[in-house]
């Protein structure tokens, strides 16, 4: 009997241990998978942002020799963007990436990407960037309605984007119909 108990206790112990281990493993693999998904998601987002440049009529007044992409708040998009920037240009202009942490820091950039993790209020950012020919891209639900030009969303596990035509036009930019055709239009 004793033996049984011991065995049983051992067994329970073992089971517990195993469950913990298993759940740990599952958790780990899940987070890893999630990390991986996140990485591919941001790869896509970076590529999309670069591709947007082809379908936006940029203001000619911006006569600088650089095309600036700003990132508001820390974001995993940074690494893939840096990769793209190494080889690509926009209208033969070199692409520069700037990192902003609060709305007050924001200087002129052609594209401003507002990271999910940015804690700054959207209104502050929009107030800072309005009418300046800047394309505001966000990645949070409802942001397009609130006034960002383009907002990334996931529909049916696929990366899509919303376009706020009014916001784009207010910024003084024009989006190509080719682009708007693919976008979820927000009014």
């Amino acid at each position: 009997m004793k033996k049984y108990f011991i065995e049983k206790r051992d067994c329970i112990h073992y089971m517990k241990y195993k469950t913990v281990l298993l759940s740990l493993f599952l958790f780990c693999s899940f987070t890893l998978q999630q990390e991986k998904n996140k990485a591919s998601e941001y790869n896509l987002k970076a590529a999309f942002i670069f591709n947007f440049t082809k379908y936006i009529e940029w203001k000619t007044a911006t006569s600088e020799n650089e095309f600036i992409i700003g990132i508001m708040g820390p974001s995993p998009i940074n690494d893939p963007l840096v990769e793209i920037v190494k080889t690509e240009t926009v209208d033969n202009k070199k692409i520069i990436i700037k990192q902003f942490n609060k709305p007050a820091d924001i200087s002129f950039c052609n594209i401003l990407f507002i990271s999910q993790s940015s804690s700054a209020s959207l209104d502050d950012i929009l107030a800072k960037t309005v009418h300046k020919g800047m394309l505001i891209i966000s990645e949070q639900e409802g942001y397009a309605e609130q006034g960002t030009a383009i907002n990334f969303v996931i529909v049916n596990r696929k990366l899509k984007f919303e376009a706020n035509v009014k916001a784009i036009n207010t910024a003084g930019l024009t989006a190509s119909s080719q682009l708007l055709k693919l976008a979820i239009i927000i009014k």
């Binding site: 591709n51 696929k158 990366l159 899509k160 080719q178 055709k181 693919l182």
Partner: peptide, 14 residues
Amino acid sequence: ESAVSTLLFIDQDA
């Protein structure tokens, strides 16, 4: 030509 953007933005439906 009209499928360029769909390829760029991986939009199979479009």
